[in-house]
């Protein structure tokens, strides 16, 4: 007879997340170490993709951890996964960083303009436990990839992307939708 509480890997992950959320809510400082080990690579990867400088990425990750801790009471698990929430907090911090005057001034020496840099292909990273970046980007055509990157890593609105790329807003929306659909299918 199979144990009734046979748990799938997914349910274990969910259980772990619920537990972690509870510990964070209880202001359990030990939970932060677990949190770091669990999420730092994902957050760091995205932050680095946005700010492009390792040094800045490290600073932003540090800021993000502190911010997540302080803002944690505002996280509502019923409205989304912890991953989505912390990723958005970190992403917003990183985007704020590249939009800050200070950062622009310090980056002025970089010849590539932000948006232009975003259009470049990211270095493929080796992530055997997830669908690889290469696999994902192979599924996206260059136009879709460009738009997703501007939206997700550049913090652009769809209107801003349209303006930036000199495309009709409708085209941008269609491409963005198509691109995200491809991504969702890969995840499923």
């Amino acid at each position: 007879m199979l144990p009734v509480s046979a748990s799938t890997p997914e349910s274990v992950a969910l259980e772990n997340e619920v537990l972690l959320v509870q510990r964070l809510r209880d202001r359990d400082e030990g939970a932060m170490t677990i949190f770091y080990d669990k999420y730092s690579a994902a957050l760091y990867g995205v932050i680095l993709r946005i700010v492009k400088k390792e040094e800045t990425a490290e600073d932003v990750l540090q800021e993000a951890m502190v911010k997540i801790w302080h803002a944690f009471p505002s996280y509502d698990a019923s409205k989304g996964r912890l991953f989505t929430w912390v990723m958005n907090v970190s992403r917003n911090l990183a985007i704020d960083k590249i939009r800050s005057r200070q950062y622009r001034v310090s980056s002025r020496t970089q010849p590539i303009e932000e948006s232009a840099a975003l259009r470049q292909a990211a270095e493929p990273s080796f992530r055997p436990e997830h669908i690889g970046l290469q696999e994902m980007t192979r599924q996206l055509n260059p136009d879709q990839r460009q738009i997703v990157d501007l939206l997700y890593f550049g913090g652009f609105t769809q209107s801003e992307v349209a303006e930036e790329l000199n495309l009709p807003l409708g085209t941008v929306k269609t491409r963005a939708r198509a691109a995200i659909k491809v991504l969702s299918k890969l995840i499923r």
């Binding site: 730092s40 690579a41 994902a42 760091y44 990867g45 995205v46 680095l48 993709r49 990425a57 490290e58 990750l61 989304g80 996964r81 991953f83 989505t84 990723m87 992403r91 990211a122 990273s125 992530r127 997830h130 669908i131 690889g132 970046l133 696999e135 994902m136 997703v148 997700y152 995200i180 659909k181 491809v182 991504l183 969702s184 299918k185 890969l186 995840i187 499923r188």
Partner: peptide, 16 residues
């Protein structure tokens, strides 16, 4: 949509 974007983010993961 959220899952797709989360997946895209996850694909960029890079150990600090």
């Amino acid at each position: 949509i959220i899952a797709g974007l989360d997946g895209y983010a996850q694909a960029h993961a890079l150990p600090p």
